[in-house]
Design a protein around this nucleic acid. Sequence first.
DNA 1: ATGGGTGCAAAGTGTTTGCAAGTAT
DNA 2: ATACTTGCAAACACTTTGCACCCAT
Lengths: 130, 130
Amino acid sequence: MKLQRNTKQRQLIYSIISNRHDHPTAEQIYLEAKSKNAKISRSTVYRNLNILVSQGKIIQTKLLTTDRFEAVAKEHYHFVCSKCDAVFDAPIDYNQTLNNSLAEKTGFVVLKHRLIFEGICSECLKKADN
Amino acid sequence: MKLQRNTKQRQLIYSIISNRHDHPTAEQIYLEAKSKNAKISRSTVYRNLNILVSQGKIIQTKLLTTDRFEAVAKEHYHFVCSKCDAVFDAPIDYNQTLNNSLAEKTGFVVLKHRLIFEGICSECLKKADN
DNA sequence: ATGGGTGCAAAGTGTTTGCAAGTAT
DNA sequence: ATACTTGCAAACACTTTGCACCCAT
């Protein structure tokens, strides 16, 4: 692995992700970064997201359409609102034994699993009350 | 809902999906369709995939990068091989109660969930033995 | 000073859409 | 005959890449 620098842009991107907890998309991260450093480019954001993921500092999750990013945390599941696209961590315990169970049944190596719930969040439910 | 026709192209696309069980991508479906009807276009494939999904005849699943399609079946989970991208149905019972459990804890309406395992399939494990 | 990083624009993927012609009903 | 569907090409959305310049080490 080549030596990696710690540029202002990379620090900025990482700090944005650690400070917000709404699982932003690359574009949302870009917009916030741009508001703090007008000259930053999308490519820099995308490149650094990839680097931070490969460094294990952030997590990239495929949910519905575009990827979402978040700071590392213990493994957990996600809920996506199909009305507003908001993403929340699901308060359901991570079931570590599922991997072993599937490995036994299939002979595959099972490294991890993702569980994504879909539905309507409380904000959107309120709005629907109108 | 407007009246929908049953064109040769739509039948072909549906039959391709029902006859293969490898969860093909739109592009793979297009290639097979093209081999049987050289003039079919990608747009026709994409449009019909969307129509078949909205008719509830096929299922569209977001796994890693591009969407995968399969004929309808009872709800089930998926395993994706991170080496060769093959997709398999996971022989793990669908846990219907998870939705209620999350709904109770959050107050959200929880409609469904997807569970995706990642690891190395047996084919790729064999190859690694070389 | 050196090689990784940046910003820009262009190119890549994967998917959707406008339109004129075709076809299932 | 009607209006849904097709094929084509162009447009879109999201992401990656080539390149010349920049800057962290």
